[in-house]
Simulated scan of single mutants.
Amino acid sequence: MAHKEIPRISGTLRAKSIQIPEVIWSAKGMVVLGRRIKSCLFSTDIAVIRNCNADSVLAVYPFTPQQIISQTIINASSIPVFCGVGGGMTNGFRSALISKDAEAQGAFGVVVNAPMVNENIKLIKKLIDIPVIATVINEDTDIQKRLDSGVSILNVSAAAKTAELVRHIRKEFPTVPIIATGGPSDDSIRETIDAGANTISYTPPTTAEIFSDIMASYRKEQDVVDNPEDKDAALENMLELI
Rank of each mutant, 00 (worst) to 15 (best):
K4G: 05
I6S: 08
R8H: 11
R8F: 09
A15H: 09
Q19C: 07
E22R: 13
E22S: 13
I24Y: 01
A27K: 06
K28W: 07
G29K: 00
M30D: 04
V31S: 13
V31K: 14
L33W: 04
R36F: 09
I37Q: 02
K38D: 11
S39G: 07
C40A: 13
L41Y: 09
F42R: 00
S43P: 11
T44I: 09
T44G: 12
A47M: 15
I49C: 04
R50A: 15
R50S: 14
R50D: 14
N51M: 08
D55L: 02
V57S: 03
P62Q: 04
F63G: 01
F63D: 06
T64S: 08
Q66T: 15
Q67Y: 15
Q67D: 15
T72Y: 15
T72M: 14
T72E: 15
I74W: 04
N75S: 15
S77D: 03
C83D: 05
V85N: 06
G86P: 02
G86C: 03
G87W: 00
G92D: 01
A96W: 01
I98H: 01
S99N: 00
E103Q: 06
Q105H: 08
Q105N: 11
A107C: 05
A107S: 08
V111F: 08
N113W: 03
P115H: 09
M116G: 00
V117L: 11
N118G: 05
N118V: 12
E119M: 10
E119D: 12
N120F: 06
I121N: 03
L123R: 12
K125H: 04
K125P: 03
K126H: 12
P131F: 00
I133R: 03
I137P: 03
N138H: 12
T141R: 13
T141S: 12
D142E: 11
I143A: 01
K145E: 15
K145P: 04
L147Y: 04
S149F: 00
G150F: 00
S152F: 07
N155Y: 11
N155L: 07
S157A: 10
A158C: 03
K161E: 08
E164Q: 12
E164T: 12
L165C: 02
L165F: 03
R167L: 08
H168T: 11
I169W: 01
K171T: 08
K171P: 02
F173L: 06
P174I: 08
V176P: 04
V176N: 05
I178V: 03
I178M: 01
A180S: 02
T181I: 04
G182Q: 00
P184L: 06
R190P: 02
D194H: 09
N198I: 01
T199D: 09
I200R: 00
S201Y: 00
Y202K: 05
P205H: 09
T206K: 05
E209Q: 14
I210C: 14
F211T: 08
I214E: 11
R219N: 15
Q222C: 14
V225W: 13
D226V: 12
N227G: 06
N227W: 08
K231M: 13
N237P: 10
